[in-house]
Computed example of a mutant assay.
Amino acid sequence: MARQLRFTGTDSKVDGRPALHADEGTGEIIVQGTPVTDPEDLAQLQHLGPNDAAVAVPRELLVNWGPKETERVPEIVDRDTFRRLFQRYLWREDAERTALPAEDFWIFDPRLVALLHFDDDDNLLNIELTTEPAEVVRYCVVRDAAMHHAVPRDEFAAQVAPNE
């Protein structure tokens, strides 16, 4: 069965290589880079098996786009903490019309995203904070696409009041 790979990032300014991808099923990181083929270079690698491949990538790629922890542990915050961070709103219908992912999230700065988890009855279950660079960038891309339709809290509240 094919892996479910998600692009996590590149430092390339030209063709998107080298790059990192994450396997959504296993959490493994797939490194895409220039193959190391020189026999003298390969001879220096320790524990390189007969079916292994070595690739060369700039250190910055791993520093900027690699995971910072071996296992991602979400930070759950209470509603009061979350409310202090809240910034903009987007109607679900607007998100569906623009084909945005069906995720409720909020970006607070270039390193922090809150992902809101709801049950089937639309009750807030918890709020997950992430600072994983590749995840933050993914949410920033979605945010940029949604920003045209998002409105400040007061404007959103004014739209909600007449509907109640």
Rank of each mutant, 00 (worst) to 15 (best):
E71W: 01
L42P: 03
D119G: 01
E69T: 10
A95S: 06
H21T: 12
N163V: 14
V57E: 02
A158D: 11
L90Q: 14
D109F: 00
N163L: 15
E103W: 10
R17C: 07
M147Q: 13
E69K: 11
K13H: 09
L125K: 09
G16C: 11
D80R: 03
E164Q: 15
P58V: 01
A102R: 11
T70M: 07
Q44R: 15
S12H: 05
P35G: 04
D80N: 10
E24C: 14
V141I: 10
A146M: 08
L124F: 04
L115W: 07
I76W: 05
A54S: 10
R59S: 14
Q4W: 06
W65Y: 04
E128A: 04
A157H: 12
N51S: 13
Y139H: 05
A102I: 01
D11E: 09
K13P: 04
A54V: 07
F118V: 10
L62P: 00
T10L: 09
P39E: 10
E103F: 08
T98E: 13
T70F: 05
H149E: 14
R72C: 05
D154N: 15
H117S: 15
A19W: 00
E93D: 15
V77P: 03
G27P: 15
I76T: 15
K68C: 07
E75R: 11
F118L: 04
Q44L: 10
M147K: 12
A2P: 06
H117W: 06
D38K: 09
P39A: 10
P133S: 04
N64L: 09
G66T: 05
V77A: 08
L20K: 05
Q44P: 12
R88P: 09
R3Y: 05
H149Q: 15
R143F: 10
E132K: 00
E132L: 01
A158N: 04
E135G: 03
